[in-house]
């Protein structure tokens, strides 16, 4: 049991819209072990983003549980979940990861502030440097290329040394080279820091880079 960082158990979630109830997740269950990199595929609209949202504690399922290191996220209050997101879970999305009016380093520093850490500037610069952004530190997001922006987003997600990284289609808007680069950085981080990674993608090629692949089909999660 102790090797599992995340245990998802029987999640159900439906959306109500215009009097029509659309079930998205019907019985999603899976585990993520510590330090493993897992990919998640499925066609559009199938519920991957919903699942990520619940894992990050941003929304609550209709039924089911999500245990993060033994604690049920779905029963935590907002403050606890916020702390979780600040310190233990990092998220990188497809786009709009950065606050548009803060520079790259300021974005990273902000993440440190939420976790209540110190030495923000030094740590931020160090990590950005590691990700190859040493000379982009003071740039605003609109001056960064797509790839640079996603790497900066990665720095934001990793600065507080989270246990879990959720990456949602991070390369979808990048060209092939950059997409690959970003993913490799993620996987390196996973290996070097013992970071658990959940990689959502709809590219089978990218999915194959991970150790394990989960498929979301008909509201359920199937291993392959």
């Amino acid at each position: 049991m102790s090797t599992a960082l995340v245990e998802v158990d029987g999640l159900q979630k439906a959306y109500r819209e215009g009097g029509v109830t659309t079930p998205v997740l019907t019985d999603a269950s899976f585990t993520l072990a510590r330090g493993e990199a897992v990919s998640m595929v499925g066609s559009s609209g199938v519920g991957k983003s919903t699942l990520l949202s619940i894992l990050a504690g941003l929304s609550l399922p209709d039924a089911g549980a999500v245990r993060f290191d033994g604690d049920d996220v779905t029963t935590m209050d907002e403050v606890e979940r916020a702390t979780l997101r600040a310190r233990r879970i990092g998220v990188v999305l497809q786009r709009d990861n950065l606050i548009p009016f803060l520079t790259a380093v300021e974005n990273v520093e902000l993440a440190v502030e939420f976790a209540g850490g110190d030495q923000r500037r030094a740590r931020a610069i160090s990590l950005l440097d590691e990700l190859g952004l040493a000379d982009r530190v003071g740039y605003l997001p609109r001056r960064l290329s797509g790839g640079e922006a996603q790497r900066a987003a990665l720095a934001v997600a990793l600065i507080n040394g989270p246990d879990l990284l959720l990456a949602d289609e991070v390369g979808a808007e990048l060209d092939s080279d950059n997409a690959r680069r970003v993913l490799e950085l993620i996987l390196t981080a996973s290996r070097e820091r013992g970071l658990t990674v959940l990689l959502v993608t709809h590219s089978p090629e990218l999915a194959a880079l991970a150790e394990r692949c989960l498929h979301v089909v008909d509201g359920k999660v199937i291993e392959q």
Binding site: V79, A82, T83, R85, A86, D96, N97, I99, L110, A111
Partner: peptide, 16 residues
Amino acid sequence: RREQANLRLRGASPAH
């Protein structure tokens, strides 16, 4: 709101 959603994602608590 978009920016706030981002902040929440980063771990901003209601107090923040």
